[in-house]
Design a protein around this nucleic acid. Structure first.
Length: 719
DNA sequence: TTAAGTATGCTTTTT
DNA sequence: GCATACTTAA
């Protein structure tokens, strides 16, 4: 049968061992994804299991999407009935369905980081808590970890001693949680925690899902946390048909509560576990795998396994030293240019770094070299202010209780309802026990004053219109009408600030994305999506999920984000002590081991060539710091790589001529028509018109890319 | 009430 | 080196 074609013995076993607990230790590049797809297909085709009886949990939405696409293509089945998704999306689906058993209603909002911070800030203000003594981020972290360990506010002191500090944490946690409940909102961690408690506390609901999910498969099991472990443990307890796939050498999410013991102890957690190891790597050449092995063998906590490859390669990985981060970026740009000349697709080149902040110099270098690139991660598209504002409007439309979102939009764009008036409305709402949206319609002149009242009436009328729109019109119509009514695109386009121009572009892209979403939703589900369907998808979406595999551009991302992907040409940069391993991981051995695994993940993405880079100095914050090469470099087998010293690279033009780096004094900036200039994102161009003087001049520029932009002098440099 | 100007703190990593 | 949060002037 075609599903089983081209599988090796171990993979075949994974596919056909359908009954009972199964642990698959799948090394990097060992055909894990193929096996999971084949196994799912096998269960449906050969074992005649209804798709509805399967539960497949992936690590990213993108992986879920791919799995669905491949299955629906090869098996011709209805994707709607498949329960394939991330823990978060599957939990959301369950929670919306089971809202009757919960204190939330099914239209609950999902709060991200920013919303969390806003709620915490409000609590700090209300209670005048000292942010120095109780750093909000630390508290947020404790709350998150508690939730991932299924410790509710009321359970807090069962696991923590009572003292000055923890008393405060408990108090904030308590308030935070009731604040969210009042807003009918859950944060990411709630999605998991509430699902775990729902199943635990409701035998009939548990039984329902136990019966439904007769076969359960979990990918990237090494990165599951306790809440996730419990959810699966409860569901699979009855039938025991649980297959977990993972690689302890690729566990990189302990800081998010993931517990590597979940995979290390699987054989103790379940009875009669069958274990299969996938040790043949089909991705990387021998020499790269040997390099990776020489690194990872320095870790103490791991399942023993030996990953091997039959692929040969003449090219050894390179270890490259440069003077500083700019030299590093230039070197990578030059190398990629060379690869491009040899016919390589930019799409198959990836730059991997430890922290998102490292991407900037590469952006500059690639722009100068006219290389297309795409950054994955960092600031998520949906986290940008202009987009989040629109999303907040949508949330208020479907969840009237969502005060957090309401406060975000009440004066955005400005409608003259300032802080004072907002406080009055909040007071009014509190006294009348209404949500802010309800209060907007009920408020009277006496409570907020004449002028604010008129403005609120106005806003209320608009709001009423949008509410009706959201009930009647399609998601696309609703969103585009809303954006039109707010007039934000026009506002941004009229601005001189290039950032505002970018915002207008983002909003247009956003509306196009809504359209795209609706189309593919109709394809999958044979019905129009609701606004709620849309918001749910968007809140759980990451940058990785909508990254463009088609467009020919270099990809830049963190080593965390690259998990599960592969590229022909891999550049790992910033291999310095303090960056990789990161400063904050130097103390603890277990943290250090995780950093090592992170590098291991990076190396094992390689299909053809690998280059490891470090810089002798690096600008951190605002000053230049001397760096030490990463301690991990010493662990690499010297037989497996070649060293290159690329010092002074940046002063050396391709022909060997010495050139001076261009220096422009700010005071020298006198712009004139016809002058050549350079812009960080748009590249080089020529000035067509000058309005004003020096840095404040408004320039009309024709860029070499063909784009015509109006830009302020301070954003461009002379060349 | 808002806009412009100033201070600060931030950097691991993400669903 | 940037974005956000806060302060000040109009």
């Amino acid at each position: 049968m075609h599903i089983l074609d081209d599988l090796n013995d171990a993979q075949l076993q994974v596919v056909t061992t359908t009954e009972g607990p199964l642990l698959v230790l799948a090394g990097a590049g060992s055909g894990k994804t193929r096996s999971v797809i084949a196994r799912t297909a096998y269960l449906i085709e050969e074992k005649h299991i209804t798709p509805w009886n399967l539960l497949v949990v992936t690590f990213t939405n993108k992986a879920a999407r791919e799995l669905k696409d491949r299955l629906s293509a090869s098996l011709n089945l209805n994707v709607r009935s498949l329960w394939i998704g991330t823990f978060h999306s599957i939990c959301t689906r369950i929670l919306r369905k089971e809202s009757e058993a919960l204190p939330y209603t099914s239209n609950f909002s999902i709060y991200d980081d920013g919303d969390q911070k806003a709620v915490i800030n409000r609590i700090y203000k209300d209670r005048s808590i000292d942010t120095k003594k109780f750093p909000p981020n630390k508290i947020r972290n404790i709350i998150s970890r508690s939730k991932n360990s299924l410790i509710r506010p009321e359970d807090f002191f069962q696991f923590n001693d009572s003292n000055f500090y923890s008393d405060m944490v408990e108090d904030i946690y308590q308030r935070y949680q009731s604040h969210l409940l009042k807003n009918n909102a859950m944060d990411f961690d709630d999605l998991l925690m509430n699902t775990a408690f729902l199943l635990h506390d409701n035998p009939s609901r548990l039984q329902h899902y136990q019966q439904q999910f007769r076969y359960v498969m979990i990918d990237e099991y090494q990165d599951t946390n306790y809440a996730q472990f419990r959810i699966i443990n409860l569901i699979a307890r009855e039938h025991q048909n649980l297959c977990v796939v993972g690689d302890d050498d690729q566990a990189i999410y302990s800081w998010r509560g993931a517990d590597i013991k979940n995979i290390l102890n699987f054989e103790q957690d379940y009875k009669n576990v069958k274990t299969i190891k996938l040790e043949q790597n089909y991705r990387s050449p021998k020499v790269i795998l040997n390099l990776a092995n020489s690194l990872i063998k320095n870790n103490s906590q791991r399942h023993s396994k030996e990953l091997w490859s039959a692929l040969k390669s003449d090219e050894k990985p390179l270890l490259v030293r440069t003077d500083n981060e700019n030299g590093e970026a230039k070197f990578v740009a030059k190398e990629i240019k060379a690869l491009q000349r040899k016919g390589a697709d930019l799409n198959q080149c990836v730059v991997l770094y430890r922290t998102n902040a490292q991407s900037r110099v590469f952006e500059n270098a690639f722009t100068r070299q006219n290389l297309r690139y795409q950054i994955i991660g960092g600031v998520n598209f949906y986290q940008r202010k202009e987009i989040k504002d629109i999303l907040a409007y949508l949330r208020v439309l479907i969840n009237p209780q969502d005060n957090e979102s309401f406060l975000r939009i009440i004066n955005e764009p400005g409608r003259g309802i300032g802080k004072v008036s907002q406080e009055r409305l909040i007071k009014f709402a509190g006294d009348a026990n209404l949500s802010l949206r309800e209060a907007l319609f009920a408020v009277d002149q006496v409570s907020v004053g004449t002028s604010a009242f008129a403005k609120m009436q106005n806003f209320g009328r608009q709001m009423q219109k949008w509410i009706e729109l959201s009930n009647e019109a399609s998601v696309f119509e609703c969103v585009s009408q809303l954006v039109e009514d707010l007039g934000v695109i026009r506002k941004f386009e009229a601005s001189d600030d290039p950032q505002d121009i970018a915002r207008a572009e983002n909003l247009k892209e956003f509306i196009a994305a809504v359209d795209e979403f609706s189309e593919s939703f109709v394809e999958d589900h044979e019905e129009e999506p609701t606004l709620q369907d849309y918001l749910q998808t968007v809140s759980l979406q990451t940058d990785l999920d909508n990254y463009d595999t088609e467009s020919s551009s270099i990809k830049l991302m963190t080593m965390h984000n690259v998990k599960g992907l592969e590229f022909d040409h891999v550049f790992i940069v910033g291999l310095e002590d303090g960056l990789l391993p990161h400063n904050r991981s130097l103390e603890l051995d277990s943290a250090l081991e995780e950093e090592r695994r992170l590098l291991y993940v990076g190396i094992t993405r390689t299909r053809k060539t690998l280059q490891l880079c470090y810089a002798a100095s690096r600008r951190i914050y605002n000053n230049v710091t001397m760096t030490m090469p990463s301690r991990f470099i010493r662990e690499l087998d010297e037989e497996c790589y070649e060293r290159i010293n690329n010092s002074f690279y940046e002063f050396q033009a391709p022909g060997g001529k010495k050139t001076k780096p261009p220096v422009t004094m700010e005071s020298e900036k006198h712009f004139h028509i016809g002058q050549r200039i350079r812009h960080v994102t748009f590249g080089d161009g020529m000035i067509l018109n000058v309005d004003g003087k020096g840095n404040k001049a408004k320039l009309t520029i024709s860029f070499d890319s063909g784009e015509l932009k109006r830009i302020i002098g301070s954003y461009v440099s002379l060349i």
